[in-house]
Simulated assay, not measured.
Amino acid sequence: MTQQINRRRFLGLLPALAVSAAAPELASAAGINDYPEKPIRVIVPFPAGSGTDDSARFIAQSITAQTGQSVVIDNRPGANGFIAAKAAATAPVDGYTMLVTTNTTHAANASLFKKLPYDPTKDFAPVSLIAKSGLVLVVPLDSPVRTVAELTALAKKKEGKLTFASGSSSTRISSELYKIMSGAPALHVPYKGVPQALTDLMGHQIDFMITDISPARPLIQAGKLRAIAVTTAQRHPLFKDVPTMAESGLPDYELTAWVAAFFPAGTPKPIVEQMSHLIQKAVGNRAAVDHFARTGGQALSSTPEELTAFVRSETLKWAKTIKAAGIQPE
């Protein structure tokens, strides 16, 4: 999509304008270089190897291919995304620091915590959606559990001593929702990210986890973890023999996560729109569809305005889910 800017509008934007990709002749006359003209830093709230990290790196490669500028991934895991979100919110508003994050920081945290060190709405300029994905319930391969019903029975037998891991709001809330809907007592063990949690699950330090598909899939394929159920409404294309949570005895159970890009609030609109265009192009092709399908997700893009509306609706949806899961804000 080529942005058209007439001369009057262009002159009106000059005080805040850092770039004009749509009117190169005017930009050249004004002495403004095309954006981007230097490396871009992408902050990610989760560790390397996580599903969000994978999405960020895919987008980074495409931005580099489209612009010739390098993109540096800055993983800042921990504190339920607080560290990364705050770093991004206070970064310079020049278009060279972007946050690639999830519903954790921009939808769920508002209901999980009484107070946040950042404002998901006021502190950020939405850029574009990137992908969405379901999750998968996994146990160690040698676990006696093969179905959701068996997991529930074991949890009740152990009277709350069964443990589950989380590395994001999605992975926690999905398990808390399972507990409420099934009546299965279990102890929550938080981690900074999903990869570390999966390592401990394979080491039998944790009993089960509902996790992002991307980091879990190779472990399932390698015979180190067993997939019990998926959280999507229909069976997942990567796990056609694995039932949904609803099929497993929990009617109406459905939960999906998403990934999106944000700039700090105050970033000039032309830069936001140019980056949105780059991301839309990155995920709007067969290579992106195939990549996200292999990692358990679905490529998905949006305009900044569409993402603004989406985040608003998702915040309300996650608030209802968190309430249904019985989670009290910390």
Rank of each mutant, 00 (worst) to 15 (best):
M1Y: 14
N6W: 08
R7H: 11
R7E: 13
L14M: 14
S20H: 09
A22G: 15
A27I: 03
D34R: 14
Y35R: 01
V44C: 07
V44M: 05
D54N: 15
A56K: 07
F58G: 13
A65W: 08
A65V: 05
Q66V: 04
V71E: 08
V72K: 14
I83A: 13
A85D: 07
A87S: 04
A89E: 03
A89P: 05
Y96E: 08
A108Q: 07
K115Y: 02
L116V: 09
Y118I: 05
D123N: 14
A125Y: 05
L129S: 15
I130T: 12
K132V: 07
P144K: 03
R146I: 07
T147V: 06
E150K: 04
L151E: 00
T152Y: 02
L162Q: 05
L177W: 01
M181Y: 11
P195M: 02
Q205D: 12
M209N: 03
I210W: 01
I213D: 00
P218I: 04
K224H: 14
I228W: 01
I228R: 00
I228N: 00
A229H: 02
F239W: 11
P243E: 06
M245G: 03
E247S: 09
S248T: 06
T256M: 06
P264N: 11
G266D: 12
E273N: 09
N285R: 03
N285D: 03
S301R: 06
S301A: 15
T308E: 15
T308I: 07
V311A: 13
T315P: 06
W318C: 03
W318P: 01
A319F: 05
E330I: 09
